[in-house]
Design a binder for these strands. Structure first.
Lengths: 241, 241
DNA sequence: CAGTGGTCTAGACCACTTA
DNA sequence: AAGTGGTCTAGACCACTGA
């Protein structure tokens, strides 16, 4: 194991190499990495050490292993890591998550408000794109979303045709922005005239207000999102473990 | 490694043994387990196998390792893992958690209702202890709690003098019950007469209702708890990462 | 210094997949 | 049958703690 400039554990070095290669796209999502033995031989370490590095990658959901088949770059574009950020479930569904279907969005481009400047760490006068849309569950209005993102991160986002049901995959594929972390604040509020108009809810009904700031891989504040949920149709489910 | 009735991997068997011993209280919280070598010798497996079992225990926060010192049963009695289960924060506090102080509790012992039988996986006619109490933040009512636990897990709980602010440490220290996992469902509701009476809230105000089932180390359903939060005083904060 | 956890190896064998 | 990941070992050495 010659040439060891750093003072990292070996498996950590192997881990770093693999992360870099995956980030560079050396292996396409859903295609297989070299076998553990092959990597061990190439990197001049033992299979156990490669294995430990891969364990970490699996824990972070960057790769998936399938016994007898191989190790694959995870495509967490779909389903997968998505449910980390969408924690809604039908009432009495024992926590099985659902993502309510979204309807046509209304987009606006404008200067950021004071609140938005604070939430997204913007400069005064910076522009944002605001997206409003409704989500349905079984055809009934369940969630109204207001999404605000910095225009500079997502140029022309407001001119995108047909926004996907979950924006985070669009952020990643079109703009190269990876949302990795989010901070949410939940509170109960009463529905107002707007809710009444768009969601068809009696005003004065209770709504669950979810205020989320999504944060990117470099710590940038990527998105501010306020969801107002009618918890008769959908609840917010959390597994603490 | 004789006598191997099951078909579990060795490290999993070791893991199970250790979990059982921790659950039985063979080692008190905050005291050290035998060393990896000692466990390996006793259980007739290699140190690496013990290590892998311990890795799993660490991942679940049941034990903590300290290089050079030893491996310790986690005491998530204090501060520590406690905030895993108490995710309340002051509004605009940037997610810094607080645990509102609890006031005098009202205890009752009675037969479980249908809902409680379902939530806690009880048998018909089984007895439960119901605890109701209010939590204050800066002297103002913030959360009302209804806690229901099986009497058989916590005999005489209703006669305990002075329940602690956080019950989970009592469950652990007095009854040897470790809460490791919880499932929560959040929804918005309107306050009712009872809320009005105890929390001094106008009826018709929005409340955040948190429905939690706490689950023990062996998967037992340990506690059902419904908290009703006045989110003007306190919000529910989540870090997704 | 002895004792603990942390890393690493080389090689063995098992379980699963695919051809 | 060959190739993959999954488990397991015995023993080595390193890094940290505390007497």
């Amino acid at each position: 194991m010659e040439t060891m400039p750093d003072f990292q554990p070996l498996y950590k070095q192997v881990y770093d190499v693999l992360v870099r290669r995956i980030a560079e796209g050396s292996w396409q999502p859903a295609e297989a990495l070299p076998s553990e033995h092959a990597l061990a031989a190439e990197l001049k370490v033992s299979q156990g050490t490669v294995r430990k590095a891969l364990d970490a990658l699996v824990a972070e959901n960057l790769v998936q292993r399938h016994q007898g088949k191989g190790t694959f770059v995870a495509e967490h574009t779909q389903e997968h890591a998505l449910f980390r950020f969408f924690r809604l479930a039908r009432p009495n569904s024992d926590g099985d998550r659902v993502i309510p279907e979204s309807t046509e969005a209304r987009c606006k481009r404008r200067v950021a408000t004071k609140t938005e400047i604070a939430k997204l760490h913007l400069k005064k006068g910076e522009k944002v794109v605001e997206i409003k849309r409704l989500r349905l569950i079984d055809g009934d209005p369940a969630v109204s979303e207001k999404i605000v993102v910095p225009l500079k991160l997502f140029p022309e986002l407001d001119h995108q045709t047909a926004l996907p049901n979950t924006l985070y995959s669009l952020y990643q594929s079109v703009y190269g922005v990876n949302v990795t972390v989010a901070k949410e604040e939940l509170m109960a509020v009463l529905s107002n005239k707007t809710d009444e108009k768009y969601m068809g809810i009696k005003s004065g009904s209770p709504l669950l207000r979810v205020d989320r700031v999504a944060i990117g891989i470099d710590g940038q504040h990527v998105e501010w999102r306020v969801s107002r949920c009618d918890t008769r149709n959908i609840i917010y489910a959390i597994d603490i473990s």
